[in-house]
Computed example of a mutant assay.
Amino acid sequence: MGKMPQKGLSGSTLKLIAIITMLIDHIGAAVIARLLIAGQGSEMLYKIYYAMRAVGRVAFPIFCFLLVEGFFYTGSRKKYALRLFGFALLSEIPFDLAFSGKILEFGYQNVFFTLLIGLLTIMLFDAVVKKQEWHPVLRSALLVIITFGGMGAAYLLHTDYDAKGVLAILVFYMTRQMRGLQIVAGCLAFCWELPAIVAFIPIAFYNGKRGWNIKYLFYAFYPVHLLVLYLICVGMGTAQIAVV
């Protein structure tokens, strides 16, 4: 007999939920927003826009959660960080085209940079936590410096979700061993953006399994879908309108 299916949601299912809600959000932010700015929108289109942006708030908490899970399951954290860095660079031009209509716009950076800074922050955090032989005061001081250093880097670089995103990743990391506390703390970390709290419903059903091997789906999908959205805007004649 074959194995009984694992109850709950696998990591790949959560990733698909995040990708779909992100796509809905970006259609609203990159395509519909331009129509509204150009004065081509109706009252119904405004309602659709706000609904799509609300749905899109679900994506980022799931990506933060999966980043932390990946941190503990990856065979090489260094390669994990390098992979995020590579796709951050690869995605920047599609991201800038989709939201500013420019090839390069340094006022706002894509979400891969936020995830990368968050990963580097918890890598340093984890290294210090494991130094049990160090004096508690020294360890505590270093953890505070690392926390504010990571948040500060995201803020100064103007990454998507900036310091709040790095803090959320740290919250997921620090509460990982206690799922109930992780969900409560995660909700508090996103209380400034209420629709994002819906993300913790599927997160609560995570079964700890990877699921389908779609490791590179998000990496590839992110720059490709942004480029497609930009080309749609080119076709509508609204590509030069900046929305960020």
Rank of each mutant, 00 (worst) to 15 (best):
F112G: 04
F113Y: 14
F113C: 04
T114K: 01
L115F: 06
L116I: 09
G118K: 05
L120Y: 02
L120A: 09
T121K: 02
I122N: 00
M123Q: 08
L124K: 06
F125E: 11
V128M: 08
V129A: 08
K130F: 09
K131V: 07
Q132E: 15
W134L: 14
H135R: 13
P136G: 11
L138C: 10
R139S: 14
R139M: 12
S140R: 15
A141R: 13
V144Q: 05
I146E: 02
F148S: 05
G149N: 04
G149M: 11
G150S: 06
M151V: 01
G152A: 07
G152W: 03
A154R: 04
Y155Q: 15
L156D: 11
L156P: 12
L157P: 13
T159H: 09
D160K: 10
D162V: 00
V166N: 02
V166M: 03
V166S: 02
L167R: 04
A168S: 15
A168P: 07
L170M: 14
Y173L: 00
Q177S: 11
Q177N: 10
R179T: 01
R179I: 00
I183Y: 01
A185L: 05
C187T: 08
L188V: 15
L188A: 15
A189K: 04
W192S: 11
W192K: 00
E193R: 08
L194D: 02
P195G: 10
P195F: 10
I197T: 08
V198N: 04
V198S: 06
A199L: 12
P202R: 08
P202G: 06
A204S: 15
A204K: 11
G208R: 01
G208D: 03
G208M: 03
K209L: 01
R210K: 15
G211S: 02
W212A: 13
I214F: 01
K215R: 14
A220Q: 09
Y222G: 11
P223M: 07
V224A: 15
